[in-house]
Design a binder for these strands. Structure first.
Lengths: 152, 152
DNA sequence: TATTGTTATACTCTATAACTATA
DNA sequence: TATAGTTATAGAGTATAACAATA
C-alpha cells in the first residue's frame, strides 16, 4: 500500500510528481498570510502596488498600468479613482494623444508608498531572518524563477 | 555612482539586501497571474480552497476553517454560505456541542473540487514543464520553505 | 474604424459590529 | 461569562457591457 499524507491544505500527497500544486499552494498560502499580516490603515494591495509603480517607474498611461497588473482597463480606472480620491495620484491628458491619460503619483503619494513598503515588508523580513543562509539562497534563486514565470 | 535598475514592478534594485522584497514581489505577481489565468466558470479562489480542504481533509467546524484560512469566522461563514447556496457544501449541528457547526462537502462539491484542481493547475504545470531540472529542484525546495513560513 | 478611457453594475472576498444560541 | 456562529453593512478589487472622445 502506498504511503499517503494529508497536506496542510487538505490535499493528498501521494508522492507523485506534483510540483505545480506545491508551488501554487505555497504561493496562495503565503499571499493570504501577507494579507493577514498587513498593517492596518494601509491602502489595499492593488492600489499600493500601482502607487509603487508610479513612484519608482514614473508616470504611466492607464493602459500601461492595466497591462502591467494584468487587469482590465476598467478595473484599473477604478483603482486610479481610489488613489486620486485620497490625493495620492493625479490624471492628466497626454498632450500628444488626446485619447491617452497619464497618471502620476503626487508627492504625498510617493511618501506614502515609500513608508508603506517598509511597513509591509517587516513581517517577511523577520521571517527570512530566521532562515539559514542556504535557505535564503534557495529563496533568492526561486524568486527569480517565479518572477520570470509570472511575467512571461 | 551606484548602478541602479528599475524592476518590473517599478521599484529600484540598488543591489542592497532585499530578499524580502524579492520574495513578496514574486509571490504577489505570481498570485495575480494565477488569477488572470483562471478558467471561467470556476468558483472564486477562497471558496474553492475551502472546498478542497473539505474534500481532502474531511468535515470541519467553522472555526477550524476560519483559522486554517486566516480569516475571521464571520468571513468564513459567508464563504460557506456561497458554497451551500450552490449545493457544494452543507452545514450540520455538532451533536456533542450544540454551538458547533460541522461543514462538509457534498458529492457534487467533491467532484467540482477535483475537476477544478486539474483545470486550475494546468497553467502552472505548463510553465514548470519549460524549466530545467535544476530550476524545478530549486522551486521544489523553495515551496517547502515558503509553505513553512506561511503556516508558522 | 480602431484605440483609449470611463461609468454602471455586479460578484467575490474581506472586515467590524451587533446579535443569538449553547456551554 | 465564555464560546461558536450568524447577519448586517461596508470597502477593495475584480469583471463585463455600454458608452464617449480622439486618432
Amino acid at each position: 500500500m502506498r504511503r499517503q499524507a494529508i497536506r496542510d491544505d487538505g490535499t493528498i500527497d501521494d508522492g507523485v510528481s506534483d510540483l505545480g500544486h506545491a508551488v501554487k499552494s505555497a504561493v496562495s498560502r503565503l499571499y493570504s498570510r501577507f494579507r493577514s499580516e498587513r498593517p492596518d490603515g494601509d491602502l489595499g494591495d492593488g492600489a499600493l502596488e500601482v502607487l509603487a509603480l508610479l513612484d519608482r517607474g514614473g508616470p504611466q498611461t492607464l493602459t500601461a498600468l492595466s497591462e502591467h497588473h494584468r487587469v482590465t482597463p476598467a478595473s484599473m480606472s477604478q483603482t486610479v479613482n481610489r488613489l486620486a480620491s485620497v490625493g495620492y495620484a493625479v490624471r492628466a491628458r497626454d498632450p500628444d494623444d488626446g485619447r491617452r491619460v497619464i497618471i502620476r503619483a503626487t508627492p504625498m503619494g510617493k511618501r506614502l508608498s515609500q513608508a508603506a513598503r517598509t511597513r509591509r515588508n517587516a513581517w517577511i523580513d523577520d521571517r527570512l531572518g530566521e532562515l539559514s543562509d542556504d535557505e535564503r539562497e534557495t529563496l533568492a534563486a526561486a524568486a527569480v524563477i517565479l518572477k520570470r514565470i509570472a511575467d512571461a
